[in-house]
Design a protein around this nucleic acid. Sequence first.
DNA 1: ATATTAAACTAACGCTTGTTAGTTTGGTGA
DNA 2: TCACCAAACTAACAAGCGTTAGTTTAATAT
Lengths: 189, 189
Amino acid sequence: MKQETRKDEIIVTASKLFKEKGYSAVTMRDLATAMGIKAASLYNHINSKQDILKAIIISIAEEFTSGMNAIIHSDASNIDKLEKIVDLHVNITSHNTNGMASLNNDWMHLEDQLGYYLQLRNEYEANFLNIIKEGILSSELKNSNPEIIMFSMLTTLRSLYLWIPKKEDLNANDLSNSLSEVLIEGINN
Amino acid sequence: MKQETRKDEIIVTASKLFKEKGYSAVTMRDLATAMGIKAASLYNHINSKQDILKAIIISIAEEFTSGMNAIIHSDASNIDKLEKIVDLHVNITSHNTNGMASLNNDWMHLEDQLGYYLQLRNEYEANFLNIIKEGILSSELKNSNPEIIMFSMLTTLRSLYLWIPKKEDLNANDLSNSLSEVLIEGINN
DNA sequence: ATATTAAACTAACGCTTGTTAGTTTGGTGA
DNA sequence: TCACCAAACTAACAAGCGTTAGTTTAATAT
């Protein structure tokens, strides 16, 4: 259990501000004020504003990648794999709601790491689409347009960050189950 | 048929840039360069950067409001009303893809008009939720959590702007039908 | 030809931005 | 008690921001 450093606190605070106004609209002075210090003091802990964004987005993107890798290498049915994907999104979003906002809305402001991020995202979507196509081939899923199915599921899952904070009463398991029902039963055969 | 003014051209160009980088990251000099003129020249046509955002977002929000009003005052079944909502989103997004990006991502940077925008959005969501609840009461829809159903549909529909440009081959009717299938059949009784 | 006008221009403004350099503070371990 | 060090500070920078004022250009209408 790694202990929370001052740098971590800055990243957590930045995530919250980035969620509210977006990366570009948050100034280093905004961030410093939220931390109760002066802007220049931030630079004792971080290298640049850009580095904060990178730290937020890349770590989440890598969580998704390793989660997806576990799923595709499991021997579950394709329906079960889709349910595991729903689970993955609910879990990651639950423990990093604010960071998901940056991942969704501010990825284009990554500079050096933009290519790497896009690579991870493309691979993730290709794996996702593949599960759906396999599910259709094996008649587990209705023969709808696989891209539309993925689009519908993925955009809903990506928007969870907007919705989870409003429903704190609902625990992660219940939410995951309800979502699986709504998202998957419509395409189930 | 009102003819295209220079101001309209600026708003169209701004929409495209706002979609790519977000409102805050686009400078008036960026916009001017994209128009092939100098930044100061923009002010012969518009009052402020803020006004451009307002023009983009509020007009779309009002389109949604009047579309929703037509739907709730029609005597269609609740399932049919949901299909009409899908249609409404596909149509508005098809003819203003870029503007939808600002509506989704930059509404919080509205200043004077923020309250008005939120009012329209809240009313829209209340009407949407009501249709789902009525559908459940009349047994047209499965007895799932109505908020999750709305969340799932609405986030998919709000994200259409990301997806429609990639699928120019698919016409609006086909897309609307496929989406209705995926989104509604899962909750249909 | 002349007056009008839409739409561009140059030049500059005051302010905010991310960031750096160098310094002070206050607590911990030797 | 003193050296150390993380973490704050003040002061300042060059660049970029949205915007204004006043001027020029080129096409249209009288």
